[in-house]
Design a protein around this nucleic acid. Structure first.
Length: 495
RNA sequence: GCACGGAUGUCAGAGCGGCUAUGAGCGGGAUUGCAAAUCCUGAGACCUGAGUUCAAAUCUCAGUCCGUGCUCCA
């Protein structure tokens, strides 16, 4: 089934086409490196990681470029606040960006260009826009002239020029700029005292934000490319500005063939923002939440829908993720040979349980691919994995003979490694999965005490002294220990 | 105000012309002294009104309500 995806510009799900057969050029707006990454960044780059993975899995050769915005008002301000050098701030935040994204098992892009390496290109494009009559010089920099290409206004957000004029209300006055219209955006900002600057035909200054992505994407891909992605908030003005710049500069329309935008993360029903105090950085969350559980939670939603992050969502994710992991580990352990016998034909209508089970799994595998092909519906894909996990667990514990079980386990492992592993990126390596969990040192400390109490409890239970048994259990709870009773006697773990 | 998106069981949330998912919660069952954990199983929903159709949660029109953007923001 062919891949379809939702294009923001065309406002519809469209068939995915590439300029070159089998090759995809994909540019995603990266972070402005003035601070550590937060949950919203995780969501965004996870969304495009999944898209990246699915395209590769579908056989495309993807050239994935993601930039770092390493010069910007916020960077300068932050550096001034902390009294440090802006370059050091940039380096530090790029390093932690990689740390955070690696932790979430986000595959690296092919290239991570930095804006400051492309200033010459930006100057060249700006000059060209001036020459073509799409830009003009004002007192405080060079601006793009919206009136020179009014038909491009609202390409992504559907807003008319008039609406924005009235909607902008009182915010437009008193900026002290000599730009002609408040909608005109800066291509080049004239130097202010104490700021890093570059030489240009318009005097010392630095590039505007929007021109950066245009310069970098064109350097890698030329005048046109397949996919441009970013957060929902970037549609306006950032991406519309890119359309103005790119299309006026190259004369190509469209420059970008598919615009993809991911939805936002809310916290407990509220927008995540610093002023509300619900701003979660990735490194903070990962202190209390397993990285793969967070990944699971974030891909268990369609990339375009907003996510409401809260305790129960994470709890749900943990539970479901552990279910998948446990099934994977059990399947790995059930593989007893290197050369499994061939399995019966998958047939969902068969009376033979193994054949029927394989038929179910085959169907769920098809459902998984169909879901991903339908605008990267990872939530539906996750549902298929969970359905398959249920089926696998059931079949593995259904009393198959050794040989069938081995073969079925091989099938299950392959199934999971392809879907949950390669595409969703939530499986650990085989070696890691089979590793016995490391003992918590705190467990060691109380171990003998707990074991003693458990013996007393077992004795009490044997003599049906439930009062005493329950008191001991309360005592253990106080120690922070949870008991799991099974047919083979009680086991325990830290809460 | 304008623009974009949404309204599905108790909740989260897929499906988007005929069959409805997934998970939590709740009911029943197995194991169990009880609880926890695990497994099996059951009930339960498609905002309102009109239209198209043999057939509508799904398409069309109207309405109501909600979210987001229009300002640096993933």
């Amino acid at each position: 089934m062919p891949l379809r995806l939702h294009d923001t510009r065309r406002r519809d799900k469209v068939a995915f086409t590439t300029m070159q057969p089998g090759k995809v050029s994909m540019y995603v707006c990266g972070v402005t490196v003035y601070d550590r990454c937060h949950l919203g960044h995780a969501r965004c780059y996870l969304a495009f990681d999944l898209i990246h993975r699915w395209l590769e899995f579908s056989g495309f050769d993807v050239h994935y470029v993601q930039n770092f915005t390493d010069i910007d008002d916020k960077i300068i301000n932050r550096a001034n606040e902390i009294g440090g050098d802006w370059r050091a701030l940039v380096e530090e935040n790029i390093a932690t960006y990689y740390e955070d994204m690696d932790a979430l098992n986000i595959l690296r892009a092919d290239d991570y260009p930095r804006c400051t390496d492309y200033v010459d290109d930006m100057i060249r494009i700006t000059q060209d826009l001036i020459d073509k009559g799409n830009a003009y010089q004002a007192d405080d920099g060079v601006y793009f002239d919206i009136e020179s290409a009014p038909e491009k206004y609202g390409a992504l957000t559907g807003q008319s020029i008039e609406a924005v004029r009235s909607g902008a209300g009182g915010r437009v006055e008193g900026t002290g700029s000599t730009k002609k219209d408040h909608k005109d955006f800066a291509l080049w900002k004239a130097a202010k005292p104490g700021e890093p600057t570059w030489e240009s035909p318009w005097g010392p200054g630095r590039p505007g934000w929007h021109i950066e992505c245009t310069a970098m994407s064109m350097d890698y891909f030329g005048a046109q490319f397949d996919i441009h992605g970013g957060g929902h908030d970037l549609r306006f003005p950032h991406h519309e500005a890119e359309i103005f710049q790119g299309e006026c500069h190259t004369g190509c329309s469209p420059v970008v063939h598919h615009w993809l935008h991911n939805g936002f993360v809310n916290i407990d029903g509220e927008k995540m923002s610093k002023s509300l105090g619900n701003f979660w950085t990735i490194s903070e969350i990962l202190k209390s939440v397993d990285a793969m559980v967070l990944r699971f939670a974030l891909i268990n939603a369609h990339y375009r829908s907003p996510i409401d992050m809260n305790e129960s969502l994470l709890k749900d994710a943990e539970r479901n993720y552990n279910r998948v992991l446990e099934c994977y580990v059990n399947s790995l352990k059930s593989m007893t040979s290197n050369s499994p016998i061939s399995l019966p034909n998958p047939d969902i209508t068969s009376k033979q349980p193994l054949s029927k089970s394989l038929g179910m799994l085959e169907k769920m595998g098809e459902g998984f691919a169909k879901a991903m092909d339908d605008d990267f519906n990872s939530r539906e894909a996750v549902a298929k994995v969970l359905g398959a996990v249920r089926e696998m667990s059931k079949t593995l514990s259904s009393g198959l003979d050794e040989i069938d079980k081995d073969a079925f386990a091989h099938y299950s492992v392959d199934w999971l490694e392809e879907t949950a592993g390669l595409v969703l990126g939530i499986l650990p390596t085989r070696e890691f999965a089979l590793l016995e969990p490391e003992e918590d040192p705190r467990k060691e400390q109380i171990s003998s005490e707990v074991e003693e109490l458990l013996i007393l409890r077992t004795e009490a239970r044997d003599s049906k002294d439930w009062d005493k048994a329950d008191k001991i259990r309360d005592q253990l709870t106080q120690l922070g220990v949870v008991i799991v009773d099974s047919a083979d006697g009680p086991t325990w773990d830290l809460i």
